[in-house]
Design a protein around this nucleic acid. Structure first.
Lengths: 337, 337
DNA sequence: CCTCGAATTGTGATCCCTCACATAACTCAC
DNA sequence: GTGAGTTATGTGAGGGATCACAATTCGAGG
């Protein structure tokens, strides 16, 4: 609700004050070239005098374009690519709006959210949820013609998407442990409903088997710090021996390091630990964490750029852009003694 | 740009199909009571059939209300209250939009951002920046009649605001160190342009002096992990002795713990460390960090609730809601030996 | 059977802009 | 100075909803 006295001025008010038609004012605002210099100056001065700014709602209604990109994601707290997305969007002339789903929302929740969002006349959608409920065709119809890009979706799906090759990342991590001589490798996996967690887990198992090894004990956490702690305690209590521990993300790895420390297990002397993500803090863990880095800046940049070019060219062919993680070796891994 | 074939249906399309006037359809949508049951059903069925959803831009234009709250903040990455704000806003029937300023934006940047935002017909503004450039009167005029609440602003300002009593939080931390017997207390402060950093620093100095102590060495960081690390190295290299270290936020404290560990300084045996914020990871640092907790859920809840009531009642008196932090004692502090 | 009032429905104007087009004013050549 | 060709400006018609009001229908009481 506006202060009643702060009645906004409109195109017509400006036009009247400047002694021109509203259309001329519109031209000045939209930088149309065909306006005489004197007229433009007169209009600009009137705009300043009335403190006029165009009403976006009306503009959106008239043009059908909002210059708004909507990001739909499931947990804002841990969204490191967010600032880069906002920055990229702005750079391309768009505003990025963010809306959040509860973690592991049901299909109906996603449907409802999309219903709500597409009513707002947004120009494009970035969808960043780890639970791939819908096929490309379903998604297309849910988005009702609004172009969309899936961010961090499953590898290999036929949908406009930008993803990391999780498999490659896991292979780097496991290969590193194998190279160091480890043969008994335990795992703390992510939440089983999380697409990345599934893929990371499968890759670990597949790869160990491919090397003729029996996968070590494995427990599923939920990607949060406390679950990393609790899972590690369970692993230790199970009595199954392991000399290396692969943790599906850095956050849980922090919990794992804590648990190992409390139990007197030295890292990396007794157990090597590898994380995943390379969150900013990982380099300062005790010991600094060896982990798999995903360049979220690039993820953000690619996602927004792809979406914007789809907006400009709706018939753009569907593609999946795949990015590759890299291994960052720090102090939490060492050769098997 | 929409797919041309996915032309959205409008009120009129629905009206035609249902054999009623557009106004009746509008009534059905807005739950107006005076609609005959049979008519309502006919309309609802037409809505379903056409997959109709009202155009929000048009609605905003007609009503002047968007049911959108805008959050203006300076660094999304570290915004723990964000999810709570989004949740609270939704609970009250609003959508929360987020936009970001570069860290320590200049006054003109804030002005430009507000110019842009207020053009979008938002119902209210949450302003969460640590640099208080404008007076209440200036702010009011910048917001052009849109109600606003300052979040985490300076203590004692006459503006609608919800803040933590930083002073109280610092006093808790320092008192804790004093109680443990520490007399040589070093400090890593936050960025000097950050309002919270200033207040925390001043409070530390004031309080130590009040106890007849000389404030120990102090270095200003920037609230990021690496600066906590670098500052600690500098403190150690300076040769000035200290038995306790107050760090202005947990993130820097993580860097500090790392630096102390590398230099062979034991925490808490040789040096006690206190942080500020109680970020989720702090309990899992090595050692677990003693820190000052601010309940960000409450901050978020109060901010949104206050803003929404201002929207409902524009003549609501200006108030500052002050929240109090609490001390969380963990393993990084111990009695002076 | 008519009248009155409530319940239901419909009509016009409006919100503030942009589009496509029509008109007016200006330049310049012949 | 008349015509064409720019360049500047103005007009009408939407865009898709809401609001205030007018018009209709309905049921009940006299």
């Amino acid at each position: 609700m506006q202060d009643p006295q702060v009645k906004r001025s409109t195109l017509r008010d400006v036009a009247e004050l400047a002694g021109v038609s509203y259309q001329t004012v519109s031209r000045v605002i939209n930088q149309h070239p065909n306006v005489a210099r004197r007229t433009r100056e007169r209009v600009l001065s009137a705009i300043r005098q009335l403190d006029y700014r165009p009403n976006q709602a009306a503009k959106v209604l008239a043009t059908g374009r909002s210059y708004i990109l909507q990001l739909l994601m499931y947990d804002i707290r841990y969204s490191d690519p967010l600032p880069a997305m906002i920055y990229q969007a702005r750079k391309q002339g768009y505003t990025l709006l963010i809306s959040e789903l509860s973690p592991f929302a049901a299909p109906e929740d996603i449907r409802a959210a999309l219903d709500d969002l597409t009513a707002r006349m947004i120009d494009g959608l970035l969808i960043y949820t780890p639970t791939p409920f819908f096929s490309y065709t379903e998604m297309r119809s849910l988005c009702r013609g609004v172009p969309f890009v899936l961010v961090g979706a499953a590898l290999g799906i036929k949908s406009p998407s930008v993803v990391f090759d999780q498999r490659h990342g896991c292979e780097l991590a496991i290969q590193h442990l194998l190279d160091l001589g480890h043969r008994q490798i335990a795992e703390i996996a992510g939440h089983p409903r999380h697409i990345d967690a599934q893929l990371r887990h499968e890759t670990v198992v597949t790869m160990l088997k491919a090397h003729g090894l029996t996968p070590g004990p494995s427990i599923a956490g939920d990607f949060e710090v406390p679950s990393g702690y609790a899972s590690t305690i369970k692993l230790l209590d199970s009595g199954e021996p392991f000399t290396a521990l692969f943790v599906a993300n850095d956050r849980m790895a922090l919990g794992a390091l804590r648990a190992l420390h409390e139990r007197g297990v030295r890292v990396p002397e007794d157990v090597s630990v590898v994380g995943f993500d390379d969150m900013g803090e990982a380099a300062y863990f005790n010991p600094p964490l060896t982990t798999v880095r995903q360049d979220l800046q690039v993820l953000a940049q690619q996602s927004v750029e792809y979406l914007v070019s789809m907006i400009g060219n709706p018939s753009m062919p569907v593609q999946q852009r795949v990015l590759y993680p890299e291994l960052i070796v720090r102090g939490s891994t060492a050769p098997l003694k």
